[in-house]
Design a protein around this nucleic acid. Structure first.
Lengths: 147, 147
DNA sequence: GTTCATGCAAAAGATTTGCACACAG
DNA sequence: CTGTGTGCAAATCTTTTGCATGAAC
């Protein structure tokens, strides 16, 4: 792991280790503030800017995904090595609830691969990642409908 | 059109008309500021908050899509009635360039429909929209590679 | 010892809100 | 008329930056 940091001309420091460790253990789509707050219990010294800078580094290293889900702040999730953890998002536009779904992905993945290949060729892009999300109204919000 | 506004308990006003008209004519993924600036030429009176409030209204009415593309501001695009204008996004994570692609969608759409149906059922969601985006490095940025 | 990373405070942006006035219905 | 919408300025929130100090190698 230290080697991976070296690759990116970056040093392994205590704050970085703490953030990485925390991300790898936690649930998905956390905001920078949530990460900062959670870390504060065990590592009161770590500042907000270090959280941002480290998340940015981890994203560039490919260890973390940065998500923009439209709620006014970016969110971050640890990128699972493990295919079985791959998922997409179902987002309620009323209350912001985010559901991870992973049950209908086999077909999606096949298509994604194909599309990636075609896009890469046509637009001369190196494709590194994809996001698929469905937007709508969740169960809870259906009840209290108001426009 | 006025009727549609009534549905939403909203009045048709000059600023709203101007913003809607502008959105319907313009290219995609504009930021609030870009919209504000462009409008200013013809309608100097319209304020930033009206732009935000109107875009929000139009989004709730389903006439406009709000996009969070991770560049620190939300973007908006007019939702085409017309299927032939439907597109997804290819985004460069280095420079922020956004390409609309619409050439490989037939298959995607079929799959999206199927997935929507399954998700709606399983999670009891009303699915209203979807976003598909691919992230990577564009042609231009490939040249000046640096981590 | 150099160079890179950190924390803090300040700055920069984007978006939202409070309020008095204007305007649609 | 009455209630909704608007513009402006201020407030809020997220993210970035400058800089002096501290730590990694």
């Amino acid at each position: 792991m230290k080697d991976k940091f070296k690759e990116y001309a970056s040093r392994m420091t205590a704050p970085r280790e703490a953030i990485l460790e925390f991300m790898s253990r936690s649930s998905t789509h956390l905001s920078a503030k949530e990460i900062y707050t959670s870390l504060h219990k065990k590592h009161p010294g770590i500042g907000m800017s270090t959280v941002y800078r480290t998340l940015d580094l981890l994203a560039r290293m490919g260890l973390v995904t940065k998500l923009a889900l439209g709620d006014g702040q970016n969110r971050y999730e640890f990128k699972a090595k493990d295919k079985s953890d791959h998922h997409h998002h179902l987002i309620c536009t009323r209350c912001g609830t985010i559901i991870n779904y992973s049950e209908f992905l086999e077909e999606e993945l096949t298509l994604v691969r194909k599309t990636e290949k075609k896009l890469a060729k046509k637009y001369n892009f190196i494709i590194e990642d994809h996001n698929i999300e469905f937007l709508g109204i969740c169960e809870k919000c259906k009840g209290s409908e108001k426009i």
